[in-house]
């Protein structure tokens, strides 16, 4: 039995240092998974392996919708199905907000201009920034930029959305608006894997929470179990450090 995203014995080395020490994880279609853990635990590396922004060991395997995530022709297909939202937004600064959202559908899906434009405007309305469509990203606040980045990822109509600490680079007053957009997405059937430090958000939205430390998954389960009644001492230590800061 394998999930929509299937991660098998995922290992990764930086030189001699083993960042990921054999991770097995099955994620169901439509599931929302939050990955938590101390910095350096490998959680960002884990989700960057799912669309192969990071290479991983030969004896590991990741499948998305049954397709192996290996370099080569199938990789572009996987990447078109897997959207990603980055901590630092990574919007294209030379394109307007609308053009940012239109680019991938136009180039990868060959969507006609008018259709791509209509779709972009629809998505920008959905994330609440329709009126900024003609501006360049640098004129937007961090929260607005991150919402554009989400719209840009959604434009490819991905089956899976990866979020790599999407609110960590934001001023505190802008975290809420981005989490609201993500919360609305969680109900739409798209599979979401979210690396986050927002425990409140994780407990409300996640179907499962994964606690990672030292390149291993230490605890997996529903949020009230992992966040509410953690079994592992290291999970408990981490949570008390995060919640009592």
């Amino acid at each position: 039995m394998s999930g929509f995203v299937s991660i098998r014995n995922l290992r990764k080395f930086y030189g001699d240092f083993e960042v990921l020490k054999g991770i097995d994880l099955e994620i169901e279609k439509g599931e929302v998974v939050c990955v938590i853990g101390p910095s350096g635990s490998g959680k960002s590396t884990l989700i960057r392996c799912i669309n192969r922004l990071e290479d991983f060991s030969e004896d590991s395997a990741i499948l998305v919708d049954g397709i192996h995530v290996t370099p080569g022709r199938s990789l572009a297909r996987v990447r078109a199905e897997v959207g990603m939202v980055f901590q630092s937004f990574n919007l294209f600064p030379h394109l307007t907000v609308r053009e940012n959202v239109m680019l991938a559908p136009r180039r990868v899906r060959r969507t006609p201009r008018a259709a791509a434009r209509a779709q972009a405007d629809r998505l920008l309305a959905r994330v609440g920034i329709a009126e900024q469509a003609d501006k360049y990203p640098e004129l937007l606040s961090g929260g607005q930029q991150q919402r554009v980045a989400i719209a840009r990822a959604l434009a490819m109509e991905p089956q899976v959305l990866l979020f790599d600490e999407p609110t960590s680079a934001l001023d505190p007053e802008m975290v809420g608006e981005v989490l609201d957009v993500m919360r609305a997405l969680a109900g739409t059937g798209v599979t979401m894997v979210i690396v986050t430090h927002e425990m409140g958000f994780a407990s409300q939205v996640a179907d499962r929470v994964i606690f990672m430390d030292g390149g291993r998954v230490l605890e997996v389960g529903p949020p009230d179990q992992v966040l509410g009644a953690p079994q592992e001492p290291r999970t408990r230590n981490f949570l008390s450090a995060v919640l009592n800061h």
């Binding site: 669309n51 572009a76 990447r79 078109a80 180039r107």
Partner: peptide
Amino acid sequence: GQFEASAALGLT
């Protein structure tokens, strides 16, 4: 990040 965002969107 510009290369990564492009790759993540499926651009060649």
